[in-house]
């Protein structure tokens, strides 16, 4: 299953985009071309849903436009893995301690928020209102129901037939680790909120995380 991942800013602006093709044997399978072109639009439609969720979760936020994010409701489970003696301050490892210890991150993962002709769309919200969104493609029969005859009416039927299974646990881990990378980017004094992230280092790490958490070979 190929995946298309994007980080969207507080002004609905794209910060980062990447396609993670799935590997089948020697072939790397991406989205077919016509579907690929649709990805940004699919994302945008999903954004409306995400913003609704954002609003629902926090109607009292001081500034929805700047993305204040509180009040998700529900109890967070305590994750008692804490590595105390890790004094490694370089790179991502230093931040890794935090996400192991982070209860509040439980509330960031939104899970599957939308679907589109067998594609599932999951999302994750950071505290600052950045949206991590991913479109999960199907395998093999992409030429069939999803990619071929896209008529406006038959959404429900097609979706239930070939909806992609979402592994919440793996995805949550992926999102959380990307969140750490994002925070690290935010800490860069020269990075401004909503700037696109263009460094090859970030891209490399995100792709490595995708390979690690999202099993894409089927």
């Amino acid at each position: 299953m190929p995946q298309y991942f994007a980080i969207i800013g507080t002004r609905d602006n794209p910060i980062y985009e990447a396609e993670f093709p799935s590997i089948s044997g020697k072939n790397s399978i991406g989205f077919p071309r016509d579907l690929k072109e649709l990805n940004p639009f699919i994302l945008h439609a999903a954004l409306d849903i995400i913003e609704d969720l954002q609003w629902q979760m926090n109607p009292n936020s001081g500034g929805v436009t700047t993305g204040g994010y509180f009040g998700t409701g529900g109890n967070s489970n305590s994750n008692s893995n804490l590595s105390v003696n890790n004094s490694n301050s370089s790179g991502v490892g230093f931040l890794r301690n935090r996400s192991n210890n982070n209860n509040n991150m439980e509330n960031c993962y939104l899970g599957k928020v939308d679907h589109f002709y067998g594609l599932s769309i999951t999302a994750y919200l950071t505290y600052g209102g950045m949206k991590f969104v991913m479109i999960h493609g199907t395998t093999g029969d992409l030429g069939g129901s999803a990619g071929g005859n896209i008529s406006g009416d038959d959404v429900g039927g097609n979706a239930s037939k070939s909806a992609v299974q979402i592994d919440d646990n793996a995805l949550k881990l992926f999102y959380q680790e990307v969140h750490e990378l994002y925070i690290k980017t935010l800490m860069n004094p020269f990075y401004r909120l909503n700037d696109p992230i263009t460094t090859p280092a970030f891209d490399k790490r995100v792709r490595a995380l995708a390979r690690k958490h999202i099993v894409t070979s089927k």
Binding site: F70, T72, R98, M187
Partner: peptide, 14 residues
Amino acid sequence: EMLVFSNNPNLHFK
């Protein structure tokens, strides 16, 4: 950003 991210128990997102 940093303090929020490191799960300060005094921050209750609820």
